[in-house]
Nucleic acid binder design. Structure first.
Length: 497
RNA sequence: GCUCCGGUGGUGUAGCCCGGCCAAUCAUACGGGACUCUCGAUCCCGUGACCCGGGUUCAAAUCCCGGCCGGAGCACCA
């Protein structure tokens, strides 16, 4: 029986009884194959070689959500077994844990693969004894030739005893990097060369951020993950389709040990319009060079950045759930995320005036100063106050666009706009027809304010905003922003329109 | 090249396994209207898609074959 036939069977079998339950397509994930309430164990297994990003959020949300849906367990496992090429970042371990919690999921267990390496050695030894793994001295290049030709390499058929001896030598540090590896026996004639006798352990003489110099022999992801998934009792794996061959390789180990492979599902690549292709390494470079402030720079696709911008975790969750778990690659705009977040934030965000690029305007003929009452939160019906006084600021955009026309200073009065503006009455009248209602600020009640986002806006904001430090507000006719700090000036982070 | 996977409106998504109730769902985007006071919010209304070609069938987005297009993997990375 070939792989394909086996997969078919599994699929067919698991699919029984999973009908009904349509509708609710957007609020819930589709039912999971072969999932029983109370028995599902899901996992999220990142390598913490950088901070969690929007992409990580998908893994966290989909797996975490399924675990919750079936009253199952959710395990977080750090697949950090390469201290060199994909070197883990010490701070990132905690960042993952923090962000997972922020997204609303509590891991039932947290596992650090790098701390459990001796465990993997035990299974390696067993496989060698079973003659299902062997130590191989071929160079990468040599082995590639054998693999491409579908021919067994000279080391494949040595006695298990001999392999075992070499293996112990590896662990004792008797060999150099690149000299010898441990391979899993699969099938050198497998129609997919990627599956043929893959590497399970290699020697890396480099200190690990978490375990230091405790080990020189490290498992590859395929091996570590195969063993861990079994040990943790993982029932369902959902991950990116780049790992699809991984499953084919790992199945050999499961077969040798007589274990049952979890149900798997793979999703395609998600490309977000607004963020080009940003690799962790290129981001790190740009941060070091000062192009970005740090890992939470609002221009970055990290979860920390979205938190800083004041996104609600619920919005991110809905966004990813709406993407489903299809295997095709998608290219989507952040506007969809913005729309989700807006739905949540709009009813609760307080409104304020932020005047960017302020232009000073003196109102001639204002009969009296008045107290202007404006909506603070239209949904709740709360109000805020501003002084309607002689000198106000309006934004340069409006000033230039409407100069010489009669405009309405929202909730205050009408003026013929210019640096010396002419008072034209308090009543709303029919100015509204032309959509000439603009926001403004009284000179006596402003504070300097900067907004940081794709670019940096500088201007003035009303003092009332101080009461919302730390929260998301709407700067009218501008955008939703999070007030990060109120000091001599107000620092706010741009969220979205 | 080899192995595997996928192609539904501008963008995502449901439906496909078990053909008819699909002149195709939902969201977002876009267009128009409403709103005596922001808006990209809200409320109405509207535009808009089954990759192509054959086949099977009374009937195909759904099944089969071929083509085209896209993607992933082919590491001592995860």
């Amino acid at each position: 029986m070939d792989e394909k036939g086996r997969e078919r069977l599994i699929q067919k079998y698991g699919d029984l009884g999973e009908r009904e339950k349509r509708k609710e397509q957007e609020t819930a994930l589709p039912p999971l194959e072969k999932a029983e309430k109370g028995k599902v164990v899901m996992r999220f297994a990142p390598n913490p070689n950088g901070p969690p990003t929007l992409g990580s959020a998908r893994g966290i949300i989909v797996n975490g959500e399924y675990a919750r849906m079936y009253d199952g367990k959710f395990i977080v496992r750090f697949d950090d077994t390469d201290p060199r090429t994909k070197r883990p970042m010490l701070e990132a371990y905690d960042w993952y844990l923090e962000d997972i919690e922020w997204l609303g999921y509590k891991p039932d267990e947290v596992i650090y693969a790098s701390k459990r390496i001796p465990l993997y050695y035990d299974y390696a030894r067993k496989l060698i004894e079973m003659d299902k793994a062997y130590t191989c001295f071929c160079s990468q290049k040599e082995f590639k030739e054998y693999r491409d030709k579908g021919v067994e390499c000279p080391h494949r058929n040595i006695e298990p005893e001999e392999s075992l001896e070499v293996w112990e030598g590896m662990l004792d540090g008797e060999y150099e990097e690149g000299e010898v590896v441990l391979r899993i026996k699969t099938d050198m004639k497998h129609k997919d060369p990627a599956i043929r006798d893959w590497v399970a352990f290699r020697i890396i003489k480099e200190s690990h951020p978490l375990t230091g110099d405790s080990f020189v022999v490290y498992p590859t992801l395929d091996f570590e993950s195969a063993i861990e998934d079994h040990l943790c009792g993982i029932t369902h794996i959902i991950r990116g389709k780049d790992l699809i061959d991984s499953e084919r390789r790992q199945r050999y180990i499961y077969q040798y040990f007589g274990w049952e492979y979890p149900v798997t599902k793979h999703w395609g690549r998600v490309k977000i319009f607004e963020f080009g292709k940003l690799s962790t390494s290129s981001l790190r470079r740009d941060i070091d060079s000062g192009k970005y402030e740090g890992w939470d720079d609002p221009r970055l696709p990290t979860i920390r950045a979205f938190r800083r911008r004041g996104f609600e975790s619920e919005a991110i969750k809905r966004f990813f759930i709406s993407l489903g778990v299809g295997e095709n690659d998608i290219s989507i705009s952040l506007k969809n995320l913005y729309a989700e977040n807006r739905k949540i934030v709009d009813p609760k965000a307080n409104r304020y005036f932020f005047v960017w690029d302020p232009v000073r305007v003196e109102i001639d003929g204002l009969p009296e100063e008045i107290d202007v009452e404006l909506p603070l939160n239209p949904t709740k019906g709360t109000k805020r106050r501003l002084k309607g006084e002689k000198v106000v600021y309006v934004t340069k955009d409006d000033f230039e666009r409407l100069r010489g026309q009669v405009v309405r200073l929202k909730d205050f009065c009408n003026v013929l706009l210019d640096s010396k503006a002419e008072f034209r009455g308090f009543e709303l009248g029919d100015v509204k027809k032309g959509r000439n209602i603009i926001h403004w600020l009284p000179e006596s009640e402003v504070m300097p304010c900067v907004v940081i986002g794709e670019k940096r806006w500088e201007g003035l904001v009303e003092r009332n905003v101080a009461q919302d430090e730390g929260r998301v507000v709407q700067f009218e006719r501008f955008a939703f922003c999070r007030i990060e700090r109120v000091g001599d000036e107000v620092l706010s982070i741009y969220a979205h329109p």
